[in-house]
Write a protein that binds this DNA or RNA. Structure first.
Length: 486
RNA sequence: GGUCUGAUGGCCGAGUGGCUAGGCACAGCUCUGCAAAAGCUGCUACAGCGGUUCGAGUCCGCUUCAGACCUCCA
């Protein structure tokens, strides 16, 4: 099995990945809070860990990939009167909270499918695990790391910090956290503002509520991931992933919760993807500078010159390493689209000319690509190796430098494996079948006749009119071919 | 203010001290009736200043600039 190296946020260095019980791997990733449209940032997180899921699987691991849906418990503000995001939106639109959650969950799934993101092994919802979250809060209470206050349960950060290292994931100093947060107004339910809710008392008008030993309420945001990861992956598991912006407080609190409940932290490797920026600034809800995935797919945003195929978005994201910020611009996307088209054209050639039988290969190209991917998922480098082959493939098509059958087969299996199986890219569908294909055959035949008669006026007219309709004619050595420009 | 990251050619973006990442754009050439497509060739950058080293984009220090987190955020 290929050795995989991953950058572990916990140790701030690249480490050899060693699962607890090979070949099993437990992977937990924070999914979306379903109260709004998905944007490019959601795509990046999903694609990053989709790549991890695919890579681990491809090298032989048996992965249980758990990615949650947060449909309750995510507070708008940390103030004591903080309202649940989904409940707030529901009130605004006079909908049942679950209608909101359902609507955006469906939209999220649609977008993920389009982006080639595989469905995880389990996709648990926070609202379906209230019992587990109550149990977690109880256990932490029993262990003395939480307190009940006015029907809510809060995690006692100061007490926890006295025995454990609170802040080790995010590199935060507990003294700074505590001294900086002692000045609470007397109204607060919390002892310190750094304390966070494990369970939240629901006020009379609050629409999302469940019974608990402390009265009606709802679970705190951080509790769900600890509860669900423990339920499906066990008290300790291999990898926990998520966006860098979740490092603090969310992931820090998760570690504290698990440690307070079980005596040890749950995940061994913490992996964080970086942000998408726009004009050098983080793309995000709070800044209001995000572009939704629907807008990309339809081209309906002032910053977009056109619609982009989901696969182009995926390719664009994979051209950067997951731990670097990736700056979005229409120009960058345009460039990515052209590059992607060039790469997939070569891939299509391989699909059409090379033998379909899978071969056991140990080619240099495959090894190079796998080595790059296994080195902390360096997708841009793997792609650069594939690009190196495009010239050879095109020369072969031009008849300038023939590739042997063995070479073609080898190239095809590497492209299928690396581009398809691991990077999850797909060749865009060309509607070159059925009625249209028949008509095009006829049109190109007529044009060929005109060309033979040196009737350039007619042949050029055909070509130009087709171009107006979005069809590009390309004259090759063995006759003309066509494709739909997208 | 605290903590942490980063600064690479026209643009995007890799680079684990030692020969050219790659893509897009651009220029020239080949092919072609013309064009498109494709191929070939060219384009050698690492914020600034010091230091370590036989050798630094890559390590160390300082400076400048940018960003992230410290509230919700993928």
């Amino acid at each position: 099995m290929e050795a995989i190296y991953l950058y572990n946020t916990l140790t701030r260095r690249k480490e050899l990945f060693e699962p607890i019980k090979p070949p099993l791997v437990g992977l937990y990733v924070c999914g979306p809070t379903v109260y709004g449209e998905g944007h490019l940032g959601h795509a990046r997180a999903a694609i990053t860990f989709d790549l991890m899921f695919r890579l681990l699987t491809a090298v032989g691991y048996k992965v249980r990939y758990v990615r949650n849906i947060t449909d309750v418990g995510h507070l708008v503000g940390d103030a004591d009167g903080g309202e649940d995001k989904i409940a707030q939106k529901a009130k605004l639109e006079e909908l049942e909270p679950m209608e909101i959650a359902h609507y955006y969950t469906e939209k999220y799934h649609d977008a993920m499918r389009a982006l080639g993101v595989l469905s995880p092994s389990i996709e648990p919802r926070a609202s379906g695990h209230i019992i587990e979250q109550i149990a977690l809060a109880k256990k932490i209470l029993d262990n003395g790391y939480a307190y009940v206050s006015n029907g809510s349960v809060y995690f006692d950060v100061e007490k926890y910090a006295a025995h454990h290292n609170y802040g080790r994931l995010s590199g935060r100093n507990i003294d700074d956290i505590l001294t900086g947060t002692r000045d609470l107004d007397g109204q607060s339910e919390k002892h310190f503002s750094a304390d966070f809710a494990l369970w939240k008392n629901a006020s009379a008008e609050h629409i999302m509520r469940w019974p608990s030993p402390w009265g009606d309420g709802f679970p705190g945001w951080h509790a769900e991931c600890s509860a669900m990861s423990a339920k499906y992956l066990g008290e300790t598991f291999d990898i926990h992933g998520g966006g860098m912006d979740l490092m603090f407080p969310h992931h820090e609190c998760e570690i504290a919760q698990s440690t307070a409940a079980t005596g040890h932290s749950a995940a061994r490797y913490w992996v964080h993807n970086n942000m998408i920026t726009i004009g050098g600034q983080k793309m995000g809800k709070s800044l209001g500078n995000f572009i939704t995935l629907d807008q990309f797919f339809t081209g309906t945003h002032p910053l977009l010159s056109k619609a982009y195929a989901p696969m182009v978005i995926r390719f664009f994201i994979l051209t950067a390493h997951y731990r670097s910020t990736l700056d979005f611009s229409d120009d960058a996307l345009l460039a990515a689209e052209k590059g992607f088209l060039r790469l997939t054209k070569a891939w299509r050639v391989l699909r059409e000319t090379a033998c379909t039988e899978p071969v056991a290969l140990d080619s240099e190209l495959k090894n190079k690509c796998l080595a790059a991917l296994c080195d902390d998922m360096n997708s841009p480098v793997a792609l650069s190796y594939l690009f190196d082959e495009v010239g050879r493939i095109n020369s072969h098509v031009d008849g300038k430098a023939k590739l042997s059958d063995a070479e073609l087969t080898d190239l095809r299996s590497v492209f299928d494996l690396v581009m398809g199986e691991i990077l999850g890219l797909e060749i865009p569908v060309v509607e070159g079948s059925g009625t249209l294909a028949g008509v095009m055959d006829l049109v190109l035949e007529m044009r060929a006749t005109a060309k033979n008669e040196k009737n350039w006026a007619v042949s050029d007219l055909i070509r130009d009119r087709l171009a107006t309709s979005g069809i590009t004619v390309k004259d090759g050595k063995e006759g003309a071919t066509w494709e739909i420009k997208n």
